[in-house]
Design a protein around this nucleic acid. Structure first.
Lengths: 172, 172
DNA sequence: GTCTATACTTCGATAGAC
DNA sequence: GTCTATCGAAGTATAGAC
């Protein structure tokens, strides 16, 4: 049954998002997924395995996101900005969870995020035909992302950024 | 003697930067500051007190940074961008340490960062006379900051951003 | 102001029943 | 595939000597 497995990964991500790395203990994950700790450790023999599986799932979601970004009707830039601010989606939750892991200076978390960012950058650079502009847009997305993960998000920021990117011809 | 106190705060910050929240245990802080755990707990009766003191010191450094930003010869925008990427300064270390705390969903860490950001934003908005542009510059700084805290920084990013901001007239 | 020794809790992980 | 019981290590904090 893969249902329990995914429920455990969901619980792990949710705890990372809400309380950070210290809050995402095996006890807490098991309790949230309504499984005993023994049950958890059957699916993931160690906490490292839990982290790895979570990041693997994120990579899958990331591939789908990049594909959607390429064909988005509103264009890749606006799609990228919106998903950088969108809070609540499963992908967003997985992304924030990975950031918590990366903040513990875990190389796997950092690598997973780096690969995702590489995928987004390629699409942005190809669409804009301008590496400096693409990198700037990516940094703005990182900024949204940081603000989200830290609870610093400002409601009007997205519209402000759109205004400025229109001036640069990066957005319709 | 305030020397030991500051050495303990330095050690706490350094451990947060290098290894994240889980690595910054009282044992590790005491060892790094070359003090016994009992010695540490004399200065900071609980870990919460250690966090509070660290954030208080950050606020002091933050006031000085905003003041320097106002009078920087290169202008506040370039000053802000540079300090957002500058790794290694005491202020930068304190800032990253606060981000680690904020990532554990600690309200004090989030509030300290929010206040700092408010200070920077006011200077940017006043200098640029354009809230949308100021918010965009701030997000770019947040992006640099996120990349630094996660080990995702890209060496050419600062020059790329300068290129784009010159197009916008936000930089000489 | 700093140390050692120790109490108490929580964490990650193992063993074995069902 | 899931549970209970338990272990050893590590975490925070206290007590009391110096």
């Amino acid at each position: 049954m893969t249902a329990t497995r995914d429920r455990l990964l969901d619980a792990f991500e949710a705890l990372l998002v809400v309380g950070g790395s210290r809050a995402a203990t095996l006890d807490a994950v098991a309790a949230r997924a309504e499984v005993s700790k023994g049950g958890l450790l059957y699916h993931f023999p160690s906490k490292d395995d839990l982290v790895t599986a979570m990041l693997d799932r994120l990579r899958e979601q990331g591939k789908a996101d990049v594909a959607a970004m390429r064909t988005a009707p509103e264009g890749p830039v606006d799609f990228y900005l919106k998903t950088s601010t969108d809070t609540g989606s499963a992908f967003d939750r997985a992304l924030i969870a990975a950031a918590r892991i990366a903040q513990e200076c875990d190389a796997r978390g950092r690598d997973a995020l780096a690969d995702l960012r590489e995928g987004w950058f390629l699409v942005l650079a190809e669409h804009l035909g301008d590496n400096a502009l693409a990198r700037t847009v990516q940094l703005i997305g990182d900024g949204f992302y940081f603000d989200d993960t830290t609870g610093l998000a400002h409601p009007s920021s997205l519209e402000h950024v759109r205004t400025v990117l229109r001036r640069l011809g990066a957005l319709d």
